[in-house]
Design a protein around this nucleic acid. Structure first.
Length: 207
DNA sequence: AGCATGATATTCT
DNA sequence: GAATATCATGCTG
């Protein structure tokens, strides 16, 4: 039985990107893979501010085939391929046509943990080493493998039934604000504090 | 523990 | 042809 009210709607995504990045912390990412649900709590995000942000792919309003998702309606997924090996999952924000997004960098497994561990390491969770358990979903490339996220889910509507985000538990979340990862080339933008994570959470990629 | 390196392919110049 | 919003591995000490 579906509890539709728990799913985040268009109005959640069509707001200021920094607000969305912070409020995504503690929410639950859900991927329905042929009826089998993979769920995890979002614990780390980064905001990418399109036009003015040299770290963003869409800096200056650049438009290419790969960036189509960023110019789509808020609540669209933007999944890009990087370093010849990994996918990164983003959530498009703001009004349609403003190319801003939030990168999800860390997730704490909630449901379907054996599916995640098989996607990552080819075995069930109980057979993982402690090192593997710790590294299951603590990074953008890693969580994409665990959640089966790839190019086929680029431009997917997160207000649909295949891939979406739900409300988490009612809880007080202690947010740390700091600089983003892997964008040393971005000049002044590399010092902007646009990375947000839940304090003391084990699935944050980097303190 | 922390650092250096290599893997790998799509995208854009 | 170069760069890349990363990760795993294999050193080092």
């Amino acid at each position: 039985m579906e509890v539709a009210s728990l799913k985040l709607g268009r109005e959640f995504y069509s707001r200021d990107t920094i607000t969305v990045a912070k409020e995504l912390l503690g929410k639950i990412l859900v991927h329905d893979v042929d009826g089998q649900l993979i769920k995890g709590k979002i614990v780390e995000t980064e905001a990418y501010l399109g036009l003015i942000d040299k770290a963003a792919h869409s800096y200056g309003g650049k438009k290419t085939k790969r960036l189509e998702a960023m110019y789509s309606i808020p609540g669209t997924s933007y999944i890009f391929f990087i370093y010849g090996m990994y996918y990164c999952f983003n959530v498009v924000t703001r009004e349609t046509g403003i190319p801003e997004a939030v990168l999800v960098r860390g997730i704490e497994p909630v449901e379907g943990i054996d599916k995640m561990s098989n996607n990552r390491f080819g075995k069930n969770y109980e057979d993982l080493t402690n090192y593997q358990k710790k590294n299951l979903t603590n990074g953008p490339g890693k969580l994409s493998i665990a959640f089966n996220l790839d190019k086929s889910l680029d431009k997917e509507d997160l207000c649909g039934n295949r891939l979406y985000i739900s409300e988490g538990e009612e809880e007080k979340i202690d947010i740390v604000e700091t600089t983003r990862i892997g964008i040393d080339y971005a000049e002044e933008a590399k010092d902007w504090k646009l990375r947000f994570y839940i304090k003391n959470n084990a699935f944050v990629s980097k303190k």
